[in-house]
Amino acid sequence: NRRVIAMPSVRKWAREKGVDIRLVQGTGKNGRVLKEDIDAFLAG
């Protein structure tokens, strides 16, 4: 159960899209999950 680094707005975006943010690979600094990462995860 790893800790995910993400801005609150990104966490909210993931929740709205029904995405478990822990499954998303972050591409930002220090592995931070970005809004673009959520979109890419949804795109496959």
Rank of each mutant, 00 (worst) to 15 (best):
R11N: 04
G18D: 06
T27L: 03
E16P: 00
R22A: 10
K29N: 10
I38V: 12
K17Y: 06
N30D: 12
L42W: 06
T27M: 04
G28N: 01
P8W: 09
A43K: 12
L42R: 06
A14I: 02
K29M: 11
G28V: 02
G26R: 02
T27V: 01
S9Q: 10
R3T: 10
P8Q: 10
G28Q: 02
A43T: 11
R3I: 13
G44H: 14
D20V: 03
V10N: 03
K17M: 15
K17Q: 13
R22C: 15
R11M: 09
N30G: 13
N30F: 12
A6V: 06
G18E: 05
A43V: 12
Q25H: 14
N30I: 05
M7D: 15
V24G: 00
I5E: 07
E36G: 12
D37V: 03
A6T: 06
E16N: 08
R15S: 13
Q25K: 14
T27A: 03
V24P: 02
L23Q: 13
I38G: 00
L34K: 07
E36H: 11
M7E: 15
E36W: 08
G18M: 07
V19P: 00
G44M: 14
Q25F: 12
V19R: 00
D39W: 06
G44N: 14
P8A: 13
A40N: 14
D39M: 09
L42P: 04
D39S: 07
V19Q: 00
V10E: 06
A14R: 01
N1C: 15
N1G: 13
V10T: 05
D37N: 04
K29T: 10
W13N: 15
V33Q: 02
R22G: 08
L34C: 09
N1S: 13
V4D: 05
G31W: 03
V33W: 01
L42K: 06
I5K: 11
N1T: 12
A40V: 09
D37E: 01
I38S: 00
A14Y: 03
I38K: 00
A14S: 04
V10M: 03
D39N: 11
R11A: 06
R32Y: 06
A40S: 11
F41K: 04
V4T: 08
R32V: 07
Q25A: 12
R15L: 14
V24F: 02
F41P: 01
G31M: 05
F41N: 03
K12Y: 07
E16A: 13
I38E: 01
V33A: 02
K35T: 05
N1W: 04
I5W: 06
A6G: 04
F41T: 04
A40R: 14
R3F: 09
V19M: 03
W13Q: 15
K29L: 12
G28C: 02
R32S: 10
N30V: 04
N30C: 14
E16M: 13
A14F: 03
I21H: 00
V10F: 03
R11D: 05
G18T: 03
G31I: 01
L34A: 04
R15G: 07
I21R: 00
K35S: 05
T27N: 05
E36F: 07
R2H: 13
K12H: 08
S9N: 12
K17A: 10
D39Q: 08
V4I: 14
E16Y: 11
A14D: 02
P8V: 09
K29V: 13
D39T: 08
V24K: 00
L34N: 07
R11E: 09
G31P: 01
R11T: 05
R15E: 15
V4K: 07
L42H: 06
L42Q: 06
A43M: 12
I5V: 12
A43C: 15
A6I: 07
R3E: 10
